[in-house]
Amino acid sequence: MTANILQLIPDEETKAQRLFSNDQEYQEFRVSLQKEVQGELERQREARRQSEEQAKKLLIS
């Protein structure tokens, strides 16, 4: 039988609390974090593309 409940420590239910009280709260967190990093990740993607382009021009002999 596959375990589908992860018991990290004994008596976990009394020691652990949910970080977000419901899924909507979690989704809000997720979306806001995504928005926050989107611009920088796009710049990184373009830098990677440009780096790969430049790699075609640098000869090592």
């Binding site: 830098a47 990677r48 440009q50 430049q54 790699a55």
Partner: peptide, 14 residues
């Protein structure tokens, strides 16, 4: 492999 160019990554972050 990942490729990094100095002139692309030196000041990439805002």
């Amino acid at each position: 492999p990942l490729l990094y160019s100095r002139n692309q990554y030196s000041q990439i972050s805002q």
